[in-house]
Design a binder for these strands. Structure first.
Lengths: 187, 187
DNA sequence: TCTCTGATGTCTCACTGTGTCATCGCCAGG
DNA sequence: CCTGGCGATGACACAGTGAGACATCAGAGA
C-alpha cells in the first residue's frame, strides 16, 4: 500500500552485509548499499549515522540491559561477581538472538576502522556497567576495575562462543576459570 | 638552506594543538592546521594518515617498547607479573618524556572520535604485550588475559598520574593495590 | 464520505571536509 | 649536467549534513 516498502533499516542491513561479503568493506560505498536496498544515500543516513554503524545495529540496547541486570542482581554480591552475573545473563540472551553473527564477525575483523568501532561499543557496555556498580554502592575505582575485569571475561566468552566452543554459558564458565587460573599463578 | 623549513611534523603538531584548544577539535579543519604551519593540506597527510592521528604522534613506538620490556623481564616471572613490570617500566619512561600531556588529554576527552582512536592505541599495546607473553612461553589464552588485566592497571595508573596524584610509579603501585583489593573481595 | 492537518518517510540539491592518486618540481650525489 | 628521490600541488571520489519539496498515512471534524 505504501509508496515505500517497510523495513528500510533491515533491508539496508542485508544489502550492506551482502555487498561487504562480495567486495570487501572498503570497496563498498554508501550509495551502493542504498541503491541495492532501493533507497538513496540520504535515507541511509536517516537510520545510521555513519557507514560503520550499520554493522552494529541494535547495539544501543546493550548498555541499558547490562545496567538493569546489575541492579537486579543479589545486593549481597561484591562488585565483580555482580558484574559477572549480569554479563553472563545478558550475554546468554544476546547469543540466542543474534543473526548473521558469522558474516558480521568476518567483516568486522577485516577492517581496522570496524575493529575500532567495536571497541567503542564494548567501552559503552563497560561504562554502563561501571555506573551501575557505583549505583549499587561500590566505590568509584572499585566499580571501574570490576567493570573492566568482568568485560574481559565476557569478551573472552563471546570469542569462544563465536569459535563454536559450545553454548554461551559454558564458554562463560570456561573464561571465568581461565581468568582465575591466570590470577592464581602469580609467583 | 632548504626550500622548506625543517620540522614539519612538530610544527603541525603544535599548530593543531593550539587550534584545537582555541576552537575545539571538530571545528578545526586539516586545511587550517596546515596553513598555520605554513604547509598545505596534502602535506599534512604525508606525515599523519588522518586528522586524529596527529594527537597520537610517536605512539607507534610503544608496542615494540613494551614487547621488548616483557622479553627482558625475569624469565621466572609468571605472565601477569612480567606484564606489569614491563608496563611499569615503559610507563615510567613515557611519563617522563611526554609533552603537552594536559592539553592533549583535554582535547581527546572532548571528542568520541578521539577516544575511539585512543582505545585503538591501547589495543595495539595490549596486542604487543600478548604476543610477547606468548613468546615467553605463556599459553594463548593465558597471555591474552594477562595482557588485558595488566593493561587495566597501566591505564588506571596513567589516569591517576594525569590527575596529579604523584609520580607515575606511585600511581602504578596504587592501581595494582586497588586491583588486588577488588579481586580479594569476592564473596 | 470528504477534507483538513500533523506526523512521517523519502527524495533532490547543494555544500563542506576528508583522504588519496597522479603528477610535477626542487634538491643533492654522481 | 642529469638523474633519483623526496616533498608539494591540483584534481577527484566519497562521507556526512542541512534545507526544502513531496507523497503517504492516521485521525479529527464537517
Amino acid at each position: 500500500m505504501a509508496r515505500w516498502d517497510p523495513g528500510a533499516p533491515e533491508r539496508l542491513r542485508q544489502a550492506a552485509l551482502d555487498l561487504f561479503d562480495e567486495h570487501g568493506y572498503d570497496a563498498v560505498t554508501v550509495t551502493q548499499i542504498a541503491e541495492r536496498a532501493g533507497l538513496t544515500r540520504r535515507t541511509f543516513h536517516r537510520y545510521f549515522p555513519d557507514k560503520r554503524e550499520i554493522l552494529f545495529a541494535g547495539s544501543e540496547r546493550l548498555p541499558p540491559a547490562v545496567a538493569e541486570a546489575v541492579l537486579a542482581a543479589d545486593p549481597g554480591l561484591a562488585p565483580l561477581p555482580a558484574a559477572l552475573s549480569a554479563l553472563r545473563e545478558v550475554g546468554t540472551a544476546v547469543s540466542g538472538m543474534v543473526t548473521d553473527s558469522g558474516r558480521r564477525r568476518a567483516v568486522i575483523q577485516s577492517s581496522p576502522e570496524l575493529l575500532e568501532r567495536e571497541r567503542s561499543k564494548s567501552a559503552e557496555v563497560t561504562a554502563a556497567l561501571r555506573d551501575a556498580l557505583e549505583q549499587r554502592g561500590a566505590g568509584s575505582t572499585e566499580a571501574h576495575l570490576a567493570a573492566r575485569v568482568s568485560s574481559i571475561v565476557s569478551e573472552e566468552a563471546f570469542a569462544r562462543w563465536a569459535d563454536g566452543e559450545g553454548a554461551f554459558t559454558e564458554c562463560f564458565d570456561a573464561a571465568e576459570t581461565a581468568l582465575d587460573a591466570m590470577l592464581a599463578e602469580n609467583t
